[in-house]
């Protein structure tokens, strides 16, 4: 391929690109979420066994998927940051962590409110809930480490190592929690006892997942822009940004 991808690895050329993408993905996310919510809350038929409580899965499942997936993407950027020593990769990893933590938190919260009517309890030590909780701790660890290290370049690399160690551990944690769960629990409670997937339901989960994707891309790119401005302060190219955004406008 003749495209010089490293060109985009410099914050200079990436900043305006991130702004444009953030904008368009935000619109896309809003459209998809709007459609997904209408289908999920209104059009999809009431489930025979779970009633309308099942409608929570339209946010629960996409959030849980995103929480898992964002960690992998973050680890991927971390690996690039360590391997090629590119500033932008580290900034991407830094920008992904809070949104990943947010997705894990949403998955846990909505899981609790789904669990109460279906299992009769807000919190069950279900394998997926438990590993999502540990995943949330891993995110919080990365964020805490970042804020505990003064020098941003050192924080970049320390967080990258932590994210990679975490990524190796995520499957092990997942497996071990699953194992522990099957040994200790009766078969009464299980997330896999989800209502039988009707076609509309499955389609809507996909729509909502696509919306979550677009939302994540949009908000992460916007955060990367903020991080670039915060960290590259003093770099001469940044001064030209001021002209792009005159005082008083947004």
């Amino acid at each position: 391929m003749s495209v010089n991808w490293f060109r985009f690895s410099s914050p200079v050329s990436f900043y305006p690109l991130a702004g444009a993408w953030s904008y368009w993905f935000a619109i896309l996310a809003a459209l998809l979420a709007g459609a997904g919510l209408v289908v999920g809350l209104v059009i999809a038929p009431t489930d025979a066994t779970q009633g309308d409580a099942y409608r929570i899965i339209f946010i629960h499942v996409p959030a849980a998927w995103m929480a898992m997936f964002i960690y992998l993407v973050m680890a991927g950027w971390s690996a690039l940051a360590l391997g090629f020593n590119t500033r932008l990769s580290a900034m991407m990893a830094q920008a992904l962590a809070p949104t990943g933590a947010l997705m894990a938190a949403i998955a846990l919260w909505t899981g609790a409110f789904w669990g109460r009517p279906t299992w009769g309890t807000y919190w069950a030590w279900d394998a997926r809930m438990t590993s999502t909780l540990i995943l949330l701790f891993l995110y919080l660890g990365v964020i805490a480490l970042r804020s505990a290290i003064e020098d941003p370049r050192r924080a970049d690399r320390a967080c990258a190592v932590l994210a990679l160690v975490g990524a190796v551990n995520v499957p092990i944690i997942y497996f071990s929690v699953q194992w522990w769960n099957t040994l200790h629990q009766g078969s009464s409670i299980s997330m896999t006892a989800a209502p039988k997937m009707a076609m509309t339901m499955f389609a809507d989960i996909l729509i909502m997942t696509a919306a979550a994707w677009c939302y994540t891309i949009s908000v992460v790119l916007a955060r990367v822009q903020a991080i670039i401005v915060e960290r590259e302060r003093g770099a001469s190219w940044l001064e030209s940004l001021i002209d792009l955004r005159p005082k008083g406008t947004h």
């Binding site: 891993l138 660890g141 975490g166 551990n169 092990i172 944690i173 497996f175």
Partner: peptide
């Protein structure tokens, strides 16, 4: 915070 979640398995 960093280490205890990794100790879970």
């Amino acid at each position: 915070l960093l280490v205890l979640p990794l100790y879970a398995p």
